[in-house]
Amino acid sequence: MVVLKAEGIKKSFGTETIISGVSLELHKGELVSLLGLSGSGKTTLFNVLAGLSVPDEGKVWLEGTEITGKPGKVSYMLQKDLLLPYRTVVDNVALPLLIAGTPKREARERAASHFAQFGLEGTENKYPAQLSGGMKQRAALLRTYLFSEKVALLDEPFSALDMLTKSAVHQWYLGIMQQIQLSTLFVTHDIDEAILLSDRIYLMTGRPGRITDEIVIDEPKPRRKDFNLSGEFLSYKREILVRLGGGPRLSET
């Protein structure tokens, strides 16, 4: 079942076209990466999908309903955790429920009920500044999940973490995704991260940015422990590098 669908998205700022003719599909429970070099318009595409900006051409559907230019339907998480420093962790996580009009007590209870599952128990009444970087991203992900159980857009959510923390967060992330089955579109410029986490990868290249390739990662989840050191992993990586390298030449023709 297709959860999120975008067709023929084009977006320009002034005279410069940032993305053009971008179409993609996200199925239920799937984790799809959008992998591209810096400046290929990934974030612009994300803002369109989240409804924050209106595309010049093209449409976006959520479960068959058109949501082009309508925020509040698809949840959204950035590299910065954007936890508000003056709200406790539980109040931060409950924010999307409060915005949707849930009464304060109920919102808090619902938020708190997920803390153990997300490995956040005991942090409810702390302030974000008292948490480590990895914990903050967990809280941000829980907030994203509480906003929408249908689709999440994650824009380089782990790129600010150091390598070891990132690796631990990846393990945790795969585990939690297995449980909550959140359909996710994941923007990254980290090839290893894309291969490790995704079911499918869209490659975005060129200027204006287009989706030039789609790669299916045919590896069962949960991933085996040494997957990122295996031959299959490396051959995926080689393939992606070749196709990304061919990107600029493709766009010249």
Binding site: A50, P71, V74
Partner: peptide, 17 residues
């Protein structure tokens, strides 16, 4: 922070919120 404002907008927040 404009990103924080965008995040709340993406959640469907009104100006008042």
């Amino acid at each position: 922070d404009p990103d924080a404002i965008d995040l709340l907008r993406a959640m469907g927040a009104k100006k008042r919120q």
